[in-house]
Amino acid sequence: MKEEIILEVSDLRTSFFDEDFEIKAVDGVSFELPKGKTLGIVGESGSGKSITALSILRLIAKNGKVVGGEILFNGKDLTKLSEREIRDIRGNDISMIFQEPMTSLNPVYTIGKQIYEALKVHQGMDKKEGDKRVVELLELVGIPSPKQRMKQYPHELSGGMRQRVMIAMALACNPKLLIADEPTTALDVTIQAQILDLINDLQEELGMSVIMITHDLGVVAETCDYVAVMYGGQVVEYQEVKELFKNPKHPYTVGLLNSMPRHDVDVDELEPIKGNVPSVRNMPKGCRFAPRCPFATELCVTELPELDRKEDGSEVRCWIYSDRWDGDPEVSVRNEERTT
């Protein structure tokens, strides 16, 4: 069965310009998100995952620019829209929530007013109608006594509550796509569980599609249907979630899984990825991961592999899976005996 694709990003490139220097923060990101599903974008700091998300809504800082690629949302290329047109989509068809609930709300306005603003700008609701909807929304995201709460200022709420408010604001206009940029990273784990449950429930209830940006593979496993793994500004692997955990293909994905200390099983020795994350100002010429990859060959160091689509629908950016692979033909990235 062919699923309907709500968002298709192909070869997205976003750069920042510092004087004359171009910093390629996102340099070749492609993925697709079927309608009603959740896509996880996972990566470490500097991988470009947040910039990818901000690029979709064109919310990147002034010195940044989408320099290439397409972002097709329901068939419409978001990169080609006018400022006015993209504004009509923001907070309406596509909403976004952010990592820092403590600083993401305006301290000088009540939360009710901040939610109402979205309703007013996109649906032209008057104050009375708007207030009613605000109460509904606050109830929907599980905020007790919403009539009183809507008159409160952000500083009067806890971090978890503020993230609920952010979600209520994002849901105000029944978005088709919700982008959640590390929505629980700043929260305690018991509060994280509440928020993730809330997002999952709301998605089912409202039939939204979700992009979940996170560094936490646990969050990916629990909330996502598809996963794009990012490294050095690029997608290195795209898979259905169960496959990714059972059968990771890219050596970086394998490295991430092996580095992660788990609370549910005992691991004798972690297998970290050697070396450091490359600087965006000084990216390796070939495969971005080559300097840290235990399998890297001459080819990997000199030439950047393409993100290749396999028959099973997965995609991987690695020479090992190509005809041109010049290393050990029997190599297995998941070799349990491998030592570092």
């Binding site: 018991t190 994280q192 593979l217 646990g218």
Partner: peptide
């Protein structure tokens, strides 16, 4: 128990019971 059950496990096939605590600290 709640703390342990709240942590997401990096294994999509492992289903578990979660005790979701209500409210804030």
């Amino acid at each position: 128990k709640a703390l342990l059950s709240a942590i997401p496990i990096p294994d999509p096939e492992k289903k578990k019971e979660r005790i979701v605590l209500k409210g804030d600290v």
